[in-house]
Structure formats: C-alpha cells, structure tokens
Computed example of a mutant assay.
Amino acid sequence: MEDTELLLNVVDVEATCWQGQPPPGAVSEIIEIGLTVVDLRARERVGRHRVLVRPTRSRVSAFCTELTGLTQDEVDTGVSFAEACRWLATEHRAGARPWASWGDYDRNQFTRQCQATGVTYPFGHRHTNAKKVFTEAHHLPKRPGMAGALRLAGLPLEGRHHSGEDDAWNIAALVVRLLQQGAWPGPTTGT
C-alpha cells in the first residue's frame, strides 16, 4: 500500500460566525484549519497540525471569539486561504490521501469558499463523514456531536472544544477507536 492509503487526514475547521445573522456583506470564512494525521495500519494519531487563516470578507465577532478562542488580531497573523489550501495539498497530500471530518460542514465550507474565491479545492474525493460512521457503528438513532461521541466512546475531550486543532485531534481519537472496532470503512482496517 502507498502512503496515501496508509494515512488519513482528519480535518476540522473553525470559521467566522455570529450570534444571529452576519453583518451586511459578511460571509462565513475559515479562520483555522486543524489537521491530525492518522496512521491507519498502526491505528494511531501520528501528526497534529494547525494553520490560522486570515479572513478577507468578514471579521471575528465577539461571539466567535467566545466560541473558538480566536481573536481578530490572532487570525490577522494567519496565511491567506489560498496559501492554506496549498499547504494542505503540498504538506499533507490532501488531493491524494483520504480524509475525514465530523459531519459534512467542513467539506461544504471548503467547497463554498473555494468556489467563492476561485481557489483550487485541495482535497480528493475520498471523504468520510466520521459522524455518520460512528452513528452507524453504535446503532444510534441520532448523530451525536463530537463531545457526545467522545463520552459515548469513553474517551476524554482533550483541549478546547471548538478549537480546530483540538477538535481534529479528538475526532482522530474517535477514528482510531472505530478502526480498533473494525468499523472504519475501507480496505485499511486490517493489520
């Protein structure tokens, strides 16, 4: 198996958000990308990464800071969205490696933002909705949030909830647990 089959990128993004409607002209933009690399054969988390992204069509609200811990001054030090997508493509082989997120929000946010800005979508087509896999593996009637899934799996919430870096790390722990249970889809669940 090639590297692209042995490693999985687990991605979680944080984006500008508001309590209620966005201000006139503002749109939700990615301000943090958290990425944890999972070695599918070893069934362990092997890399933890974070990149801050500078928004250009919105600002970080007080509500967003309270939720994510990120401030406008902090994200102003980040890279452009185009640079962040290049980082994913070059440093993490995002176009070739399979990837996962908790739900479809992250995938949809990247799709929307790439279309709106003309930036090349960095990921390939092999996306797994880890929330859906977890829900089916545990025969749950409803899809839980990440924190609830960690509780159900008997795993601790490490770090701050709604931090892209910490959430990617925690989602990856759930992926590892699903791998150990033989519930993660694909040919890479064997040893």
Rank of each mutant, 00 (worst) to 15 (best):
C64G: 03
Q72G: 00
G69M: 01
R45C: 06
G69H: 02
R59I: 04
R54V: 09
E74Q: 15
R57L: 13
S80T: 15
A62P: 02
E74H: 01
L70G: 05
R50L: 01
V60S: 06
D76S: 13
P55S: 09
V46Q: 07
V46P: 01
E44L: 11
R50H: 10
R59W: 05
L52K: 14
T65F: 02
L67F: 04
V60H: 04
C64E: 08
E66Q: 13
T71C: 01
R45D: 00
R57Q: 15
R54D: 12
F63P: 01
G69R: 05
L52Q: 13
S61E: 12
S61A: 09
R59N: 00
S80M: 14
T56Q: 15
L52P: 04
S80I: 11
S61Q: 10
R50P: 01
D73N: 03
C64T: 02
D73W: 00
L70M: 09
T65V: 02
G78W: 12
S80Q: 13
E74V: 08
T56L: 09
V60Y: 04
V60I: 10
H49Q: 04
L70N: 08
S58N: 06
E74Y: 00
A84Q: 11
G78N: 09
D76N: 15
L52A: 10
T65Q: 14
P55I: 09
G78S: 11
A62G: 08
R50M: 03
E44Y: 00
R45I: 03
T77G: 02
V53E: 13
A84D: 11
R50A: 09
E83K: 14
E66G: 02
T71K: 05
D76Q: 11
E44I: 05
V75M: 05
S61K: 11
S58V: 02
R54Q: 15
F81D: 11
T65I: 03
D73R: 10
P55N: 09
R59T: 14
V46C: 10
L52V: 13
C85W: 05
E74A: 14
T56R: 15
V51L: 11
R50Y: 02
L67R: 05
E66N: 05
E74M: 14
C64K: 03
R50V: 03
R54A: 12
A82N: 07
T65D: 03
G69Y: 02
T65Y: 04
D73I: 00
G47E: 15
L70D: 07
R54T: 14
L67G: 04
F81Q: 11
C85D: 08
Q72I: 00
R45P: 01
C85I: 06
V53W: 12
V75D: 05
G69I: 01
G47Y: 01
R57H: 15
R54P: 08
V75I: 06
F81P: 11
T56A: 14
G78A: 09
Q72K: 00
V53K: 09
V51E: 11
E83T: 15
R54C: 14
T77P: 01
T71P: 03
G78C: 08
V79N: 12
R50G: 07
L70H: 08
F81I: 12
V53A: 07
G69N: 02
V53M: 07
R48A: 03
T71G: 04
P55D: 09
S61G: 08
T71A: 03
A84W: 12
V79D: 13
L67T: 08
V53F: 08
V53L: 10
